[in-house]
Design a protein around this nucleic acid. Structure first.
Lengths: 230, 230, 230, 230
DNA sequence: AATGAATGAGGTTTCATTCAT
DNA sequence: CATGAATGAAACCTCATTCAT
């Protein structure tokens, strides 16, 4: 049932193509449309017909780009997740205070979320719909993303004198992911922008809790003030 | 010679359609089996045939208890969610310090989770698969559950001097729900019991954050110690 | 945490849904086979499986041509009824004595009947099985056919000095339709051909009744004579 | 598939029962409800569940009165058709002028129609839904009803000097049945009462046609006048 | 007499996928 | 590249009917 995802195909020269071997516009559009449908309706509830219809192409035409429905899901997930991971790894390479690194990580995540909400939601909730090699390849990306966050959480918890076990760090990390991933379920641009505010609130909760004193940076104050108006 | 088209035939209400009938052993078993399948595979990926096979009854036999697949989902959700809500409302009636109330709420939630993981997961992730009246009835329960938590979060945040807006309270509450609901995705009895430990960790994070000092109650210490061994 | 229920997914219009596409051999065959089955067994008693089997195509293959069973019925009805109506309207455009116009109308009807008995029977007895837009589109054709006959009947009744009311004309017209439509129930080519004889008998009854003297045209006499041999 | 219709069952004494062995009230009600549904939706489109629901009795309960769905149809048809036939045979026993006998026959038919429209419609349009012995028993009744009308039509046609063949008489008779049976398709109490008017119009058309002179009896005139107001 | 529970067969429709063109 | 046509499998659901109570 599982097909190898088709390797990046050589493209005939085309006026709109810059010739650098980067994927075709058409593919991008298809992936975007598919992601939106799958984010809205779920993978199983989205049919290849739906995707074809939404992209105004024929059903058979889809199979030029994706060897199967699962391959389509894989490509949606892999493309966007790899991109998010690269951005985070790049961004966290630079040293800095732990709190600032956490803030950066959260802001990157949210910023990516606002630009690729559908794709990211599909990455988050439809991993189990893959199988075999596709599953493993995306799982690997997810593991790396997890590690990024877990390392930071572990350092923060250690520094505060808690001497947490690996099991405790794992759970704290998963709490943070819970906060981030659940955003897909309620985010409303009319109420929840700017995302800087949202990010500050998350960071503050994670660092200091409901009872702790807030670290009110300038950015934090400003965006919180805006948040009050929302 | 001209006639009006025949009206859509009125469908009689299904005998067990109201979601509030008195319990029947057979019905209980069916709901449990269905919940487990749906929790594992998702609502859309679970077929009525799967449920019938799992419950060793005929496909048509299912339709004695549920007027449709959606009705089955509704009954699964309504029964367990109503039960959770009743337990929480009962439990939170008693007065007490805010922290303790939060701890109680989280422990109730986790305790219910361990006893009805499948049903609760279905409640959490498949609300959107309902529609019409079924949707609204479960939505109402969910709203009440949300209010329970939101009130507590609001009081905690207010008491710590933050004077949070409604919008901020909403988001803080949804962060807490994110932590709780994401547990479905990673909970592993081999690593994550006893749940008292898990509950304490959640409460500590929510109240004091990664950087704050933990309020280590006796219960908390004991279960954390056990947790370290897990 | 609260979301609106997902809207019913918009269904794309079926490629051949408009009932006016250009003819395709395969489509013609399918319509013919379906009409025969439905005329023989009734619409509700004819299953899509039956049609597919009879046409030696797969069940799913049918749905390339018809978006639903009702659409199949609609296309059967619309195609043949539009054709009959066009033929009659064309034929009655030419002026002539009222009696001759009635004779022409009846002969056209019977001639069409012998060529498309199954389709016409489906048009006559299964209008109520349509609904919505399909119903209205066929109803409009039926109304126009009714008007054609009603105008003729009205003029004939008026000319004979009866000064009939609209209500009376309506009923007289419906009597004529009763005669014509009931033919589906008893017509037997072994006994009831040639149809010219049948047509003359109908016209004579309608014009002069059982007690009136027959207007025996040459054509009438000749075909009656043949009828006697049948 | 065909069961012998259950013989008239002995009834336990019951206060509301007159003890004369006539069928139970309950049976009457069931037959009436079933007839109405089948007349409206067609035999195949009416399920036993529909009947049970409409009669507020259990599905299994129906099978105490009818051995099968086909038996239900048979009983509906047989009971009412036998009754109509008996009434007509009784009524036509008395001698009288041919025209008056025809008028009597039509009025009886219409009178029965207004009292038992649903049942009569089922008799008329669902004979083919029976099979085997049920079919043959109702067919026999239908044949006798046909003969009643055919004899009258034959005498009328013969008396007017036409010397019609058997084949011609058969067709003329079937024309008359067409008029009568098609009434089910358009009768509207708001427009088409009193039925005496309707009966007179039918008789006039059959006897004298559109071009013949009307026999305006007192009854005819009166009811036609009322018809004009409709 | 009456019914709740149960079922095998079959209904319409949709699905992912293939293939000749 | 692109597509219309086609299909086997499987989806949800309803049917007439039976049977223990």
């Amino acid at each position: 049932m599982i097909r190898r995802p088709r390797a990046a195909r050589a493209k005939a020269p085309h006026p709109r193509d810059d010739g650098a071997g980067q994927p075709s516009d058409r593919l991008e559009i298809l992936l975007g449309k598919a992601a939106r449908l799958m984010a809205k309706e779920g993978y199983h509830h989205t049919s290849m017909r739906d995707v074809a219809r939404d992209a105004s192409c024929s059903l058979a035409g889809l199979y030029h780009y994706f060897s199967s429905k699962e391959d389509l899901l894989f490509q949606v997930q892999h493309r966007v997740f790899a991109s998010l991971l690269a951005a985070q790894e790049q961004s966290l390479k630079a040293p800095g205070p732990l709190e600032e690194r956490l803030r950066l990580l959260v802001q990157n995540h949210l910023s990516f979320f606002t630009r690729h909400a559908a794709e990211l939601k599909v990455c988050t909730f439809e991993l189990e719909s893959l199988s075999g090699a596709s599953y493993r390849r995306v799982e690997e990306l997810r593991r790396r993303y997890y590690r990024l966050v877990a390392d930071l959480v572990g350092e923060l918890a250690t520094r505060s004198g808690a001497a947490p076990s690996d099991v405790e760090v794992r759970r704290l990390t998963l709490f943070v992911f819970g906060i981030l991933n659940w955003i897909f379920m309620w985010f409303d641009p009319a109420r929840d922008t700017p995302i800087e505010t949202l990010g500050d609130e998350i960071v503050n909760l994670v660092l200091y809790g409901l009872c702790g004193q807030r670290a009110t940076t300038d950015a934090g104050q400003k965006s919180t003030a805006l948040g009050l108006a929302g």
